[in-house]
Simulated assay, not measured.
Amino acid sequence: MDVLLSLPIVSYFFSTSLTSWSTSLNLLFFYMTWSTLVLSHSPLRIELIGITAIRTVLWLIPSLVFLLIDTVVPSLAESIKHTGAAALPPRDAAYIARTVGLALLNLALESALESGLSLGLTTAIGSPIFLTSTTLPLPWHLIKQLALLFTAREVLTYYIHRYLLHSSQRSPRVTRLHKQFAHSHRGAPYSLLLGADHPIPFLLHRFVPLYLPAAALRPHILVYLIFVALSTLEETLATSGYSIVPGIMMGGVTRRCSAHYSSSGRGNYGAWGLLDWVHGTSVGRGDVMDDVRDEAEKHQIKERGGNMVQNGIDGLRRSARNRKSRRVSSDSN
């Protein structure tokens, strides 16, 4: 618990910086908290406590809250689910208890596997698998590494999901287990199903695309924790089945995830839908390019881009006129 409370992000949210501190003091407070954490705990401990806290706060707790809403007020949940009543979880106490137990088991297995792999890799290479130091990553490095990690995750998620979890010819046993557990519920999913798969397909689908790119890139531990946090939040919202998820892009991800479950896994294998669009495996209403067009229209990108170009041209013309006026003035003198 002391490690969890000492995580910089937790300390930040419980500080008064949200109301009165300047940005510089926020950064100083964050750096001091992070330095204290790094100097007082081992890299492996920081990694494991960090990811466990992230998955608990951003997936397990919201999933149980969503499950409570779906079962206590089903009429409300039905009205905001993509496939209506078909998306509601069965109102069977024994079934729900088994689903929660399986999700908790997979969460524990995921943490144990990561612990063993990180410990083994650290021993093999003689240094922590993720850079753990008081020096924080520069913004450009953070953005670049996150972009690489998310790209690799999308690629691995798509091909693992399509060719291992939904291909009875290539991997009949894994495909059968995935359909038996993850796709036992017809209609749009609910967030608890994110972890309620058989352990083998669960680890292939949810753990490998996260950990493998990070282990290859070996970023700063803070970059890895941010990557896990954003991915976990995305997956929780995507599997919620709700049609009221904010944002066109995130709403599209949720809609495609619901279509994947409703179609018994006939398409929409990627997290974002880009590779589904490339390979023609999109199912349901709209694909990722439709979301991009909607997002562009929402923010009026064409109009703003045209205004920026026109403003640039006007600026160049004004500069030319000013230079000409200065030359005429100097010649007259």
Rank of each mutant, 00 (worst) to 15 (best):
122 T>N: 09
116 G>Y: 02
129 I>T: 15
330 S>G: 01
80 I>C: 14
196 A>R: 01
7 L>N: 04
187 G>V: 08
86 A>D: 15
304 R>Y: 10
88 L>R: 03
151 T>E: 06
301 I>W: 14
333 N>V: 14
234 E>R: 08
297 E>F: 03
319 S>Y: 06
297 E>L: 12
4 L>F: 12
222 L>V: 05
191 S>Y: 07
303 E>H: 09
199 P>D: 11
5 L>P: 02
191 S>P: 08
64 L>F: 01
164 L>E: 11
111 S>P: 00
91 R>I: 10
291 D>V: 09
197 D>Q: 14
187 G>R: 14
118 S>D: 09
108 A>W: 07
96 I>V: 15
279 H>A: 07
266 R>P: 07
220 H>P: 09
246 P>S: 01
50 G>F: 00
201 P>Q: 07
87 A>N: 07
134 T>W: 08
28 L>V: 12
188 A>I: 12
39 L>T: 06
23 T>Q: 06
203 L>E: 03
102 L>H: 04
5 L>K: 11
211 Y>F: 15
123 T>Y: 14
219 P>Q: 01
28 L>K: 13
251 G>F: 01
57 V>Q: 06
143 I>L: 15
3 V>P: 02
288 V>G: 10
276 D>Q: 08
284 G>K: 11
317 R>H: 04
5 L>E: 01
224 Y>V: 11
268 N>F: 07
74 P>K: 07
11 S>I: 02
204 L>E: 05
30 F>S: 13
276 D>W: 08
42 S>C: 05
283 V>W: 08
194 L>W: 02
164 L>S: 09
144 K>Q: 08
261 Y>V: 14
2 D>Y: 00
147 A>L: 13
288 V>S: 13
333 N>Y: 12
122 T>W: 10
51 I>S: 06
27 L>Q: 15
101 G>M: 09
153 R>A: 05
244 I>G: 00
319 S>F: 11
28 L>Q: 15
262 S>C: 06
294 D>M: 04
232 T>V: 05
285 R>I: 08
8 P>F: 06
80 I>H: 12
272 W>T: 08
20 S>D: 04
97 A>S: 12
162 R>T: 04
58 L>Y: 04
161 H>V: 03
181 F>M: 02
197 D>N: 14
276 D>C: 06
19 T>I: 05
169 Q>G: 01
84 G>V: 06
266 R>Y: 10
28 L>G: 03
307 N>W: 05
217 L>V: 03
165 L>G: 05
149 L>W: 12
222 L>N: 00
203 L>R: 05
216 A>M: 14
86 A>L: 15
200 I>P: 01
307 N>G: 07
169 Q>C: 03
18 L>W: 14
28 L>H: 11
3 V>C: 02
119 L>P: 02
40 S>C: 00
123 T>N: 10
260 H>G: 10
28 L>A: 15
263 S>W: 04
41 H>P: 00
98 R>M: 03
60 L>E: 01
15 S>W: 02
93 A>P: 02
205 H>F: 06
324 K>N: 13
238 A>S: 14
